[in-house]
């Protein structure tokens, strides 16, 4: 895992939302790395801070109330947090692009899909309008939509096709990093598989690195190389896919696997994780997971766990493992 050619390194990143009702620590001291061509899965429940992380990388966290409090986002050797908006605009949509969660609302309803793809091409590549349109038609073909439909508006497409258009926009400039924020959540199961296939093929074709945000462990197993599990703004477990599936360490991760139905087991009931995600303005002291944790100890409510490397390339934020190390 210690690859020197990391495309993206996130170091101690913290993003907070400062509201009248209190401060939401959406992302807390996050550390992640992504190599060239690698796919990282970012897994967690709704509200765990996955989308905020993604918007943080794009520097698009709505501000106010959101703010990057500290840390670095090093992309191709340069810290994105320190960059100006005009420098960032040259990276957004060009080197880093994002596929959004809801295809029904992510496209501008009064612009043709062709214009929406051509827009990003014109912004980042030295082409005239005709060439940009041609490129837009090519991209449509690439995601399986006839190029002749570039003059159609979003409302003339189905949800799955709109998501393909969103993907076409994201890939139009051959980004080196693609952030996919639950790209299949809003789609039917059959369409989900098609879209995942499409993304995997295009990723191979362009050797794009990818951050796949999802709450679906099945999707992770299919497309990811590495996985980071998030809980209440913290990455609580971070390792490669194989190790995560064979030997999950954090009680929350184990709980997640317990809540997936398994055809082969005889059990008739799923084992859900007890309780709910904590109120984001009022995160429990110590380890944020301790009130729901089946293995909670007294110390868990008093001290925040540190990021512990339990085996090479396998990081866990849990006091259980910090203690065994000592």
């Amino acid at each position: 895992m210690k690859d020197n050619k990391n495309l993206l390194e996130i170091k101690d990143l913290s993003i907070h939302y400062i509201t009248d009702d209190g401060t939401v620590r959406a992302v807390e001291e996050m550390n992640l790395e992504i190599g060239v061509g690698e796919t990282l899965g970012l897994v967690g429940e709704t509200g765990a801070g996955k989308t905020t992380t993604a918007l943080g990388i794009m520097n698009l966290v709505p501000n106010p109330p959101g703010k990057i409090i500290g840390g670095e986002i090093v992309f191709e050797g340069e810290d994105l947090v320190k960059k100006s908006q005009s420098e960032l605009r040259k990276i957004r949509g060009n080197k880093i692009s994002m596929i959004f969660q809801d295809p029904m609302t992510s496209l501008n309803p009064v612009m043709t899909v062709g214009d929406q793809i051509a827009e990003v091409v014109k912004l980042h590549q030295n082409v005239n309008a005709a060439e940009a349109t041609e490129r837009a038609m090519e991209m449509l073909e690439k995601v399986g939509i006839p190029g002749t439909r570039h003059k159609d508006f979003p409302h003339q497409f189905s949800g799955g096709m709109r998501q393909r258009v969103v993907i076409a926009i994201a890939l139009a400039c051959n980004p080196t990093l693609l952030i996919a924020d639950e790209p299949t959540t809003a789609l039917d199961v059959t369409i989900q598989a098609q879209v995942l296939d499409l993304m995997r093929n295009l990723k191979h074709e362009f050797n794009t690195s990818m951050i796949m945000i999802t709450h679906d462990l099945g999707v992770v197993a299919e497309v990811c190389d590495k996985v980071a599990i998030m809980y209440a703004g913290n990455v609580i477990e971070y390792t490669d896919v194989k190790r995560l599936y064979t030997s999950p360490k954090h009680p929350y991760t184990i709980g997640l696997f317990g809540s997936i139905p398994d055809i082969e087991s005889d059990e008739s009931r799923l084992k859900p994780i007890k309780g709910l995600m904590p109120d984001p303005t009022n995160i429990p002291s110590g380890c944020p997971f301790h009130p729901r944790c089946p293995k909670a100890m007294d110390i868990c409510s008093q001290r925040k766990p540190k990021n512990t490397e339990v085996e090479p390339g396998h990081f866990v934020k849990c006091l259980l493992f910090e203690n065994t190390e000592k």
Partner: peptide
């Protein structure tokens, strides 16, 4: 947000 994410 999509338009901003394009770098517009």
């Amino acid at each position: 947000r999509t338009a901003r994410a394009k770098g517009q």
